[in-house]
Design a protein around this nucleic acid. Structure first.
Lengths: 145, 145
DNA sequence: GTCAGTGCAAACGGTTTGCATGTTT
DNA sequence: AAACATGCAAACCGTTTGCACTGAC
């Protein structure tokens, strides 16, 4: 799995895989590199369109898919609403609050033991990224269900 | 959280909550009680319609939602395709294979340590049911990707 | 008789696809 | 110039909703 934080690393990887470098791709990558949180495809699209209004949502989906296939970005399903995307940086996992629908990162080591146990007992190889754990964040736990 | 395996327990609970007992509800409950695996809403609908062809998908969704609200059924998002439903029987969790898209149960104790850790370090209260863990089952791990 | 529950059809959100056009290589 | 990437619009899947009607209580 890749570990990328800068645009040129991503572009480099694209070239290495004989993918073409286009304006929409540059824009998507730029958005992802500067993103502070985890973005849905729609949020990526809106930010991209702020730079290049003519880029279509389907193109953004296709680019995200391509980057995902190359392990340059990672996406995660949250059990509510759209999937979230971010660059495949330092390996981490996700949890989503069912109350406020915020997705945040947790160290993926919290899965270590569970992953070992699943492998040993079920022969199941855990993917720590593909879905976010669900529950209630500190704040929403206080408020109410 | 409820622990129900028999139709009459479910019907009982519905009465206790002043919900009406209708033919479509009986059929949905019957299907769930006899289900061997985890069913999508669509699968429930098809099985219900085998008994009562005039029951509409939206009704099935509404019934599943009602039963879910009453903690009589549980649903889980798998990171691929439709959510799966089953009776709220013995507490267990789910994992889904990204290869063959099979969802199966695992003892929810595998989460014990992780849940404690999330609570202690993040103040996050884990819901062990709402999403299924994702990965590769023994068989698909062998085959390929 | 009342109201919750239902069927239908239409809308919805998120995502994918077919196709003609444009752009990178 | 060939191949690939794009924009658009339409389709898609899973799910929710508005509404008039039916049937449980």
């Amino acid at each position: 799995m890749g570990t990328v934080q800068r645009s040129d690393e991503v572009l480099e990887a694209l070239r290495a895989h004989a993918k073409r470098i286009t304006a929409p791709k540059r824009a998507v990558i730029e958005v992802l590199v500067h993103a502070h949180d985890h973005l849905t495809a729609d949020e990526v699209t809106k930010q991209v369109q702020a730079l290049r209004p003519d880029v279509s949502p389907s193109t953004v989906y296709r680019i995200l898919e391509e980057l995902d296939d190359l392990d340059l970005v990672v996406h995660s399903h949250t059990g509510h609403g759209a999937a979230v995307y971010h660059l495949a940086g330092a390996s981490h996992s996700h949890v989503t609050c069912e109350g406020c629908h915020t997705t945040f990162e947790v160290p993926s080591e919290i899965y270590d033991r569970l992953a070992r146990e699943l492998l040993a007992t079920q022969g199941f190889e855990l993917n720590r990224h593909h879905v976010a754990l669900s529950g209630l964040c500190e704040h929403c736990r206080g408020s109410h269900s």
